[in-house]
């Protein structure tokens, strides 16, 4: 064990400016993705400055890999992964949302894949991002998205015995069948 002080000071506020080369813009990202994937990546949208798009669920890994590996794109940080339930969209009831960040160029993007709620199979991103492991477990736990290839896909925050996926919209916030609450006492008589 060496007792040297390994601590150094960062470069401060202004060194965070982007490198000299051309800044990575939303247009560039869209062009590169369209050139690579054509019609398979679609629904480009600029929401509050963040580029958002969609791809078919079979493509999620190919897309993540490309975004990760491409020298210019360099989206190597998975900020967030979660699901959304849209009960009114038949065949597209569940969406898995990826938030990615290119830390060097400081650009964030978001993309979604939609799936049928009856066959919610989506390839796991945990091989590419270690951080996806628990985020996918959480998504499985609450929405029942089956991440194909996940090393340990089991519930994480809820009890193991739970037999439904509580964040789906079909489950109202309060269990309407509860009998242990006296409605009169709760002002619902």
């Amino acid at each position: 064990m060496e007792a040297n002080n390994s601590f150094t000071m960062g470069h401060g506020l202004w060194s965070m400016d982007k490198p000299e080369k051309m800044a990575l813009t939303n247009e560039t990202i869209q062009q590169k993705l369209t050139a690579k994937f054509g019609e398979a990546v679609f629904g480009f949208e600029d929401t509050y400055g963040m580029l958002c798009f969609e791809t078919a669920k079979e493509n999620n890994l190919k897309l993540l890999q490309f975004l990760h590996d491409d020298e210019e794109l360099g989206f190597r940080f998975l900020t967030d992964l979660c699901a959304v339930n849209y009960p009114d969209q038949p065949g597209r009831e569940l969406a898995v949302v990826y938030h990615l960040h290119n830390l060097a160029a400081n650009v964030r993007i978001r993309f979604k894949v939609f799936t049928d709620i009856n066959t919610p199979d989506i390839y796991t991103a945990s091989k590419l991002f270690a951080s996806a492991n628990w985020m996918e477990r959480e998504t499985f736990d609450f929405y029942g998205v089956n991440f194909v290839g996940h090393p340990n896909l089991k519930r994480i925050l809820n009890v193991d015995e739970m037999d439904y996926f509580p964040m789906r919209k079909e489950y109202p916030l309060e269990d309407q069948t509860r009998v242990d609450k006296d409605d009169e006492m709760f002002g619902r008589g």
């Binding site: 601590f7 150094t8 000071m9 960062g10 470069h11 401060g12 506020l13």
Partner: peptide, 9 residues
Amino acid sequence: FDFSIPVGK
């Protein structure tokens, strides 16, 4: 504001 980001190794 003027401040630095300390980093370790």
